[in-house]
Design a protein around this nucleic acid. Structure first.
Lengths: 353, 353
DNA sequence: ATTAGCACTATACATTACAGAGTGCTAACA
DNA sequence: TGTTAGCACTCTGTAATGTATAGTGCTAAT
C-alpha cells in the first residue's frame, strides 16, 4: 500500500470538499483554480489519475471529473476533514429549542429530532432510551376485561411503557393492586435490566411454586417486560428534507429509501450498531452496512447518556454526500445538550427564568 | 342551471372512469370506442364541448382530450359512481389481519392503517379515538421530581394518555396516591368529556376553596386533561405508496405533500371535518378544503364507532384521481370491522381459536 | 340529431448538430 | 526530474429541427 503524499491528500480533500458542495464530478481545472492556485490543472490531472488507481476516486465516464469513492470518503472523514466550529448562535439556537417544553422526556426527544432535521436540512432520527438502561420507577396493573391486564411501566425518566397482557386467570382489580404494590416495593431503585434479570432468576426458584401472589406478580411482570420487536422505538423527522437533495430527484431511489424508513426494524439495527460505540460522533456510510436498502444514504450519529450510562442514539440521515463538517458538530452538540437534560431534567425549567 | 341528459351523464361518467384508470386526458375517440360504441366520436365531441362549457370537464390544451374538473369529479362521486362490491376474499383478508394481534387498541389502530395502505396502495391515516368520547377507567399520579407529577390516564378502551404536569407545590407520592384514589372513586363510569366538564364546573364552587385534597386533585386532573394541540393523535402509513402514482413523479409536488403530512395539524383539521359526519364513507377532494397544501390530494374516510358513539376516523389519502369504486368499499368495510372490534375487544381472541 | 370528412393544432419523440467540460498524452521547460 | 502548455479526443447536455400522433372544431351531408 502506497502512502499518500501531503500534496495527494490535499488534492483528495479538495475533490471531496467540492463534491460535497456541488454534488457533481469535479474536474482538474476546478481544483486548480479554487483550491490549489499554485498548481496547474495538468499536474492535478496526473495526481487525480493516481488517486483513481489507488481507489480513492472514480470517474463516471471518460470526459467527466472525479467523484470520491466510498474509500475516498472514508479516508476524508478519518484524516482530512476539518470540522467547523459551532458558532455561538447555533449553540444558542439548539439550547433555546428546549426552553418552552413543558412535557416529559418524550417531548424532549421529539424536539431533538425536529431541531436536528431543521438545522441540518436532512432527516433526523432519535432512538429512545433503551429499556434496560433506565431505572424502574413504578408499575401499575389495570384490569381491562376478562383475562386482560393493562400493564403500565414508568421509568425514572418519566417514559411510560404500556402493554396489554393476557393471563390465563381472571384477576380482580383489588388483587392486581396488591400485586403492583408488592412489585413497586421490591423493585425500587433497580434498573429495568436488573429487574428483568431478577424476575427471570427468581421465577426459577421454588418459592414461586408456593406463594401465589408472588408467582402471579412475577408472571405478569415478565410479560409486561417482553420486548416487542415491532414497537416504534424511534422518531424519524424531516423526511421531506431529503427531497431537497438533488441526488434524490430520482423517484425510484426515493421510493427505496422511504420504504426503508417505513420498516423501522432496519433502521433500528443500524442505530443499534452505534449504541455500543465510544463517545463522540460516528459516521456510517450506507455501502458499509451491506444492506441493500440503505445503500444510498449515510448516518451521522452520537449517543446520549445519563451520567456514564448510554441511553440512546440521535443522528442525521441524508445522502452519502452530506455536509459533514457542518453536521458533525451539530449532532455532537445536540447529543451533549440532550445528555445534560437527561442528567437533570429540572434544568429545563430553571433555564427558562 | 341546465340539467344533464341521460346521455350527457353517461359520457361524463365514461370520461371520469377512463381518466381515473389512465391518468391521462381522454379523447372523444376513446369514449366512443370503449364506452359508447353506438355513438361516433364526432357526437361525443359535441357533448364534451357542452360539458366543458358547463364546467364539468377541462381541456389542458387545444388538441388534448378532456380531464374532469373538480365539479365533474364531485358530480361523478355523488350520482354516477358504481361502487364495486367487496369480494369475500378481500373481506376475509381484512378480518384476518386482526387475528394475531395481542396488544391493545393502539395495535389495532396501527394495524388498520397498514391494512388500508396495503389494500388501497395509497397512504392511509387513522385518527385516534377522541378523548372526550371514551370512558374513564383510571387515573394514576407519579411524582417524578420536585414539583413534577406524571399523570397517567387510562381509558376504558385501554388507551393510555400520559402527561407531565407541574404543580406549584411539591406533593409527596403518598398524598398523590390519595388524590388518585379519590378521583378514581368519583369519576368511575363517566366519559372523559363528562369528566372534564364536571371538573371545570366543580372548581368554580366554593368547596374547592376549603377542602385542600379535593382542590389539589381537581387542579392536577384539569392539567392532565388539557388537550395538547401538538400531540400526534394519528397514524399515517404507507406514504411511500404515493410515489407509485404517476402524478407524483413531480418532485416539487411530492415535497409539498410530504410537508403537509409532517405538520399533522392540517391533517387533523381535515379529519375533524369528517368526525361529525353521519355514517358511511365520505370523500373530500383537496381543492374543496381550500387549503393550499392539500390541493393535490383527496381523502376517502369513514368514522368508526363504539355503539352509537363516534370514536375516530380511518381513511385513505391519495391523488385526486383515485380508484374510488374500489377504495370506497374497502374503507367502508374496514371501518365496520374496526367498530366491531371497539365494541367488543374480546372478539379478537375468540375468533383466533 | 347524427356523422363523415377535413383542416388545424399541440405534444411527444427521435434525430441531428453543437458547445462545453474534462481527460490523457506529448513535448517543452526550469 | 517535476511541472506545465498545448492539442486531440470523448462524453454529455441542450437546443433546433422534423415527423408522427392524437385530438379538436367546424361544415356539409345524411
Amino acid at each position: 500500500m502506497v502512502e499518500l503524499s501531503q500534496r495527494d491528500k490535499k488534492i483528495l480533500k479538495a475533490v471531496v470538499v467540492d463534491y460535497i458542495k456541488s454534488g457533481e464530478p469535479v474536474g482538474s481545472r476546478t481544483v486548480s483554480k479554487k483550491y490549489m492556485t499554485n498548481l496547474s490543472s495538468a499536474t492535478i490531472r496526473n495526481v487525480m489519475a493516481d488517486l483513481e488507481d489507488l481507489g480513492y476516486l472514480y470517474q463516471p465516464h471518460t470526459s467527466a471529473g472525479r467523484v470520491p469513492t466510498e474509500k475516498g470518503l472514508r479516508f476524508y472523514l478519518e484524516s482530512l476533514m476539518e470540522i467547523e466550529k459551532l458558532g455561538k448562535r447555533e449553540r444558542d439556537a439548539i439550547r433555546r429549542a428546549y426552553l418552552d417544553l413543558t412535557g416529559g422526556v418524550e417531548e424532549i426527544l421529539k424536539k431533538t429530532s425536529q431541531v436536528l432535521s431543521n438545522l441540518c436540512s436532512q432527516a433526523a432520527v432519535v432512538l429512545w432510551p433503551r429499556l434496560t438502561a433506565t431505572k424502574f420507577k413504578r408499575i401499575e396493573f389495570v384490569r381491562l376485561y376478562r383475562n386482560h391486564v393493562l400493564t403500565i411501566l414508568v421509568a425514572e425518566s418519566g417514559i411510560v411503557h404500556h402493554r396489554l397482557v393476557t393471563y390465563d386467570e381472571d384477576i380482580a382489580q383489588e388483587e392486581l393492586d396488591k400485586l403492583s404494590n408488592y412489585l413497586n416495593d421490591i423493585l425500587k431503585d433497580m434498573t429495568l435490566g436488573e429487574v428483568k434479570n431478577r424476575i427471570l432468576e427468581e421465577m426459577k426458584e421454588e418459592k414461586a411454586l408456593f406463594d401465589q401472589i408472588y408467582n402471579r406478580a412475577m408472571q405478569i411482570m415478565k410479560k409486561a417486560l417482553q420486548e416487542k420487536a415491532e414497537e416504534a422505538e424511534l422518531y424519524i423527522e424531516g423526511q421531506a428534507n431529503l427531497l431537497d437533495n438533488p441526488e434524490f430527484a430520482d423517484i425510484e431511489r426515493l421510493k427505496r429509501i422511504l420504504r426503508a424508513f417505513e420498516d423501522k426494524s432496519r433502521l433500528l439495527k443500524l442505530l443499534d450498531m452505534t449504541l455500543g460505540s465510544s463517545e463522540g460522533v460516528q459516521i456510517i456510510l450506507g455501502p458499509e452496512t451491506e444492506t441493500q436498502e440503505l445503500n444510498e444514504i449515510s448516518l451521522v450519529s452520537s449517543t446520549y447518556r445519563k451520567g456514564e450510562v448510554v441511553l440512546g442514539v440521535v443522528g442525521v440521515i441524508g445522502p452519502i454526500r452530506m455536509d459533514y463538517p457542518k453536521i458533525v458538530p451539530i449532532v455532537d452538540y445536540t447529543a451533549q445538550v440532550l445528555s445534560e437534560l437527561m442528567e437533570n431534567p429540572e434544568n429545563m425549567d430553571t433555564s427558562r427564568s
